[in-house]
Amino acid sequence: MASRREEQKAEIRLKVMRLISQNPEMSTRQVADEVGISNGSAYYVLTALVEKGFVKLGNFKKSSRKGQYAYLLTPKGIREKSILTHSFIERKRQEFVVLRAEIKALEAEAGLAVEATRAPKGGAQ
Rank of each mutant, 00 (worst) to 15 (best):
Arg118Pro: 06
Ala113His: 01
Tyr69Arg: 00
Pro24His: 07
Phe88Trp: 13
Leu57Gln: 15
Leu84Gly: 06
Ala119Val: 09
Glu11Asp: 08
Gly77Lys: 02
Arg118Cys: 05
Ser87Thr: 05
Ile20Glu: 11
Glu95Asp: 08
Pro75Leu: 03
Pro120Leu: 12
Leu72Trp: 14
Leu19Lys: 01
Arg118Gly: 02
Leu99Gly: 00
Ala113Ser: 12
Lys66Thr: 10
Thr47Cys: 03
Ala124Glu: 15
Ala101Glu: 08
Gly58Ile: 13
Glu6Ser: 11
Leu72Gln: 05
Leu14Gln: 04
Thr117Glu: 13
Arg4Asn: 09
Ala119Met: 04
Val114Leu: 06
Asp33Ile: 02
Val45Cys: 11
Arg18Met: 15
Ser21His: 01
Pro24Lys: 02
Lys56Tyr: 13
Ile89Tyr: 06
Val97Phe: 03
Leu19Phe: 01
Ile12Phe: 03
Ser87Ala: 10
Asn59Arg: 11
Ile37Gln: 01
Ser21Phe: 08
Ser41Asp: 10
Lys61Phe: 12
Arg29Glu: 06
Glu7Gly: 10
Glu7Met: 08
Ser21Leu: 07
Tyr43Asn: 13
Leu84Thr: 04
Met26Gly: 03
Pro120Trp: 02
Lys81Cys: 03
Asn39Tyr: 05
His86Val: 03
Val98Gln: 14
Glu107Ile: 05
Arg29Val: 06
Ser64Trp: 06
Glu107Gly: 01
Gln68His: 14
Gly53Val: 15
Arg65Lys: 12
Gln125Glu: 12
Glu80Leu: 05
Phe54Gly: 00
Thr47Pro: 03
Leu49Cys: 03
Val16Cys: 08
Ser21Asp: 01
Glu34Cys: 09
Ile37Gly: 06
Ile78Leu: 13
Tyr71Met: 04
Met1Thr: 07
Gln68Lys: 13
Ser21Ile: 05
Met1Phe: 10
Ala110Cys: 04
Ala42Val: 14
Ala105Pro: 05
Arg18Gly: 15
Ser82Arg: 06
Arg65Ser: 13
Glu90Tyr: 09
Gly36Ile: 04
Arg4Lys: 14
Lys15Thr: 07
Arg18Glu: 15
Lys9Leu: 13
Val31Phe: 00
Gly77Thr: 03
Glu51Val: 08
Lys9Arg: 13
Tyr43Ile: 12
Tyr44Ala: 10
Glu6Ile: 00
Ile89Cys: 06
Gly111Met: 11
Val45Asp: 14
Leu46Glu: 06
Ser3Lys: 02
Ile103Leu: 12
Thr85Leu: 13
Ala70Asp: 02
Pro120Met: 11
Asn23Ile: 00
